[in-house]
Amino acid sequence: MSKPAFRDIVAAVTRSKGAPFTLEPARLRAPVNDEVRVRIVATGMCHTDLIIRDQYYPMPLPAVLGHEGAGVVEAVGPEVRSLSPGDHVVLTYGHCGHCLSCCAGHTSYCTDFFRRNFGGSGEDGQVAITTPDGALLHDHFFAQSSFATYALSRESSAIKVPKAAPLSLLGPLGCGIQTGAGAVIHSLKVTPGSRFLVLGAGAVGISAVLAARLAGAGTIVAVDVVPTRLALACELGATHAIDSREPGWVEAVRDITGGGADFALESTGRPAILAQGVAALGPRGVLGVVGASPQGTQAAFDLNDLMIAGKRIQGICEGDSVPRKFIPELVELHMQGRFAFDRLVTFYPFADINRAAADSEAGLTLKPVLLVDGHA
């Protein structure tokens, strides 16, 4: 059997814990089985890319990260049926498709989720990306590793979108945006007239604000420490904004909501904020948790407050979304002018990937998107 053909690519590689990304020449093998090879037009940068760089989760390095890719299908494996070269796609997380969670439509809770998205290789333990001299680079990050000019994905993780949609903008729908919006719509099921609280007005949090407005929430409270983020949250649907550095902010939330929020979303990954979020809930309120923390992070809260008030804490992964259905829905809502996630995005040339990371960590940029297409 002949070896798969390789394509020369440029990839952003992180080689050690906390090290900057370096753009390097590399090689990507041809798609096999149900894989597709995608020419990356643009890719979002998510908090998860940075915490893997910093080894919050133990993905092996050196690696090619990136998991909010959008691009054009260049080639397909022999088992691909629903995609063809030239199709526009948004890349999203990997799942097995046959475990009990996947079969029940809960693909973000696939029993093999961690290995498929953070394992650093394919199902067979092999990588698809190497250096020009053949050294291995860990990849298959969220079934794509899209910090590169080309990426391999599986048919089930490459979501076809209309060619009329602005492809360079759409990558963040594959993770961060669908997480925030999906948490509101699918996980918490925010209801019309309800009281919604978002803890952290980053890209995920403001996506949740956009979705809460769509869902008809009557009161939407955004909590953050960055004034510009709070101002944008109000422009996009929040009815109130609170700086969590101010003393008594939990009581302020309870006053605004008339006794506490019905629904809340914790997107900061900070245990103290989670505990305060529980305190800010009203009776039978539910707090969804999407913020990523280092493995082993513990949180403390008042057990009696939780029990007596009938409050709930719910873990949420990828917004409980079924990407093949939800991503096209978000694209359509955006094209109708009803889901303005473009207000969160700042574009950067691919070569400025480290500046994008620094701006994101400093709170200067909500959602960096790297313009990859045409990079030499």
Rank of each mutant, 00 (worst) to 15 (best):
P328I: 01
P328L: 05
E329A: 10
E329D: 13
L330P: 09
L330G: 05
L330T: 13
L330K: 07
V331N: 04
V331P: 00
E332Q: 01
L333M: 07
L333P: 02
H334V: 01
M335K: 02
M335T: 12
Q336D: 09
Q336Y: 14
R338N: 10
R338K: 14
F339Y: 06
A340D: 08
A340Y: 05
A340C: 05
A340K: 13
D342I: 06
R343K: 11
R343L: 06
R343D: 08
L344T: 15
L344C: 11
L344P: 09
V345Y: 06
V345M: 12
T346Q: 03
T346R: 03
F347P: 00
F347I: 04
Y348F: 01
P349T: 07
P349A: 13
F350V: 03
F350S: 04
F350R: 02
A351M: 05
A351C: 12
D352F: 04
D352N: 08
I353V: 08
N354T: 14
R355D: 07
R355E: 15
R355Y: 15
A356T: 06
A357M: 10
A358T: 08
A358S: 12
A362T: 03
G363D: 07
L364H: 14
T365R: 09
K367I: 08
K367Q: 15
K367V: 07
K367T: 12
P368V: 14
V369Y: 01
V369M: 04
V369N: 03
L370M: 14
L370R: 07
L371F: 13
V372T: 05
D373R: 10
D373E: 14
G374P: 02
G374L: 05
G374Q: 05
G374R: 00
H375A: 12
H375F: 15
H375N: 12
A376C: 09
A376Y: 13
